[in-house]
Structures are given as structure tokens and as C-alpha cells.
């Protein structure tokens, strides 16, 4: 579902730091590459479970990867 609030998504930066392609992260998280692209662009807000899976694959936390605009990171 498209997010209805502004959000900062740090998935792309973290993914690049880990040396992963979108396709690799998609496979690890069990979703399509297009879904990872949509998440990184902020066009799609993942479910809690998907956000947790992505965070686990990037050795990060959901709070580090996703937060609302205006909130402290």
C-alpha cells in the first residue's frame, strides 16, 4: 500500500553498504525485485513482517531503515 505520510527510507543506502543488488536483497527477503525498488523509492510501505525480514538481511533494525519525516533518526 502506498504510504500516506512522508517517510525516510534508508534501505537503499544500507543495501549498497552491504554490497547487495536489489535482486539479491529481494531474493533474501522473499519478494520481487520490483517490490524492493518500490520500497526504496518510498512508493510502497512494507508490512511489519517484511520490514523485519529486510532489516534482518541488512543487519540493521526497522527503526534505522524506516522512519517518519520529522522524527529523530
Amino acid at each position: 500500500m502506498p504510504p500516506d505520510t512522508s517517510a525516510w527510507v534508508g534501505v537503499r543506502e544500507r543495501r549498497k553498504d552491504r554490497g547487495l543488488t536489489q535482486a539479491q536483497l529481494a531474493q533474501l527477503a522473499g519478494v520481487s525485485r520490483q517490490t524492493i525498488i518500490s520500497i526504496e523509492r518510498g512508493d510502497y510501505a512494507p508490512s511489519v513482517y517484511l520490514a523485519l525480514r529486510i532489516a534482518a538481511q541488512l543487519d540493521s533494525t526497522v527503526e534505522e531503515l524506516f522512519h517518519l519525516e520529522g522524527e529523530p533518526s
Partner: peptide
Amino acid sequence: MGDERERD
């Protein structure tokens, strides 16, 4: 039905 975004 694809993944959660595709299903949506």
C-alpha cells in the same frame, strides 16, 4: 498472487 505488494 505474488508477494505482499503485488497482491495489494
